[in-house]
């Protein structure tokens, strides 16, 4: 699934490690999310949305093929 995680993380000046720590996952999981290889659980998607103060749909493009 495509997402804006990388763009938002870089805008916030965070490393993958720091963002992972903030939402309770590993650096590798943030990397996988950014590359579109891993679809997050609802819990993780909401945690990321809350962290960036956006809605889940503003971060993840759930309609992308």
């Amino acid at each position: 699934m495509e997402s804006r995680v990388k763009e938002l993380r870089q805008d916030a000046g965070l490393s993958q490690e720091a963002l992972g720590r903030a939402v309770g996952v590993s650096r590798q999981t943030i990397n996988s999310l950014e590359k579109g290889r891993y679809d997050p659980s609802l819990r993780l998607a909401v945690a990321l949305a809350r962290h960036f103060r956006l809605s889940v749909e503003e971060i993840f493009d759930v309609d992308a093929p």
Binding site: G24, V25, S26, R27, Q28, T29, S32, Y38, P40, S41, R43, L44
Partner: peptide
């Protein structure tokens, strides 16, 4: 270790992706 594969092989999952 900072290696996800090491954690997965050791059955010490750090998060949902590693469990998957």
């Amino acid at each position: 270790s900072d290696n996800d594969l090491a954690r997965i092989n050791a059955l010490e999952y750090a998060d949902e992706r590693e469990r998957q």
